[in-house]
Amino acid sequence: MLQLELYGKDRVKFLEKLVVADVENLPINGATLTLYTNANGGIIDDLIVSKKPDALYIVSNASRSEEDLKHLEEQMAQFIQTNPGSDLNMKILNDKSLLAFQGPKAAETIQQKLESVDLNSLKFMNGIETVYDGIPIRLTRCGYTGEDGFEIQVSNEQAANLADKLLQQPVSRLAGLGARDSLRLEAGLCLYGNDINMTTTPIQATLAWTIAKRRRTEANFLGAEIILQEMKDKPKIKRIGLVGAKSGPPVRAGSKIYKDSVMNEENLIGKTTSGCPSPSMGQNIAMAYVKSSSSKVGTSLFCEVRGKLYEYHVSKMPFVPSKYYL
Rank of each mutant, 00 (worst) to 15 (best):
Y192M: 06
A187P: 03
A160Y: 12
S155E: 01
I152S: 02
A187T: 09
L166K: 06
A159F: 09
Q153A: 13
L189A: 10
Q169C: 05
S121D: 15
Q153V: 07
N194V: 00
R141K: 15
K113N: 11
N161Q: 13
N161S: 14
S172Y: 07
E129T: 13
G178F: 07
L119C: 10
F150E: 03
Q169T: 04
V117Q: 01
K113S: 03
T145P: 08
L119G: 07
N126K: 14
D164N: 08
L122H: 04
L166D: 03
M198Y: 02
D195L: 08
L122R: 08
L177S: 09
N194F: 08
D164W: 02
N156H: 04
G176Y: 09
N126V: 03
S172H: 09
G178Q: 10
Q153W: 15
A175I: 14
R184P: 03
R180H: 11
N120F: 03
C190N: 13
L139G: 06
G193D: 01
T140W: 15
G149I: 12
R138S: 09
N126A: 08
E147S: 13
S121K: 12
K123M: 10
T130C: 14
F124L: 04
I152W: 10
L166V: 01
Q169Y: 13
A187H: 02
A160F: 13
L114D: 05
R173T: 14
A163V: 00
L139R: 12
L191I: 10
S155Y: 00
L166P: 02
R141Y: 09
E147Q: 12
I196L: 05
R180S: 06
E151I: 00
G188C: 03
T145Y: 06
G143E: 06
D133M: 04
Y192C: 06
L177N: 07
A179G: 00
D118K: 13
C142R: 06
C190E: 06
E186I: 07
E115W: 14
D118T: 15
P136M: 00
P170H: 11
A160Q: 10
E115L: 07
L166N: 04
S116V: 04
A175Y: 12
S116G: 05
C190R: 04
E186P: 07
K165Y: 08
F124S: 06
Y192F: 15
N197R: 04
L177I: 12
E157H: 05
Q168M: 11
E129F: 07
L185R: 03
T130S: 14
Y192E: 12
L191E: 14
N126C: 10
D181T: 03
M125A: 12
E157A: 10
K165S: 05
N161R: 12
L185N: 01
Q158Y: 15
L167F: 05
N156T: 09
I135S: 04
V117L: 08
I152P: 00
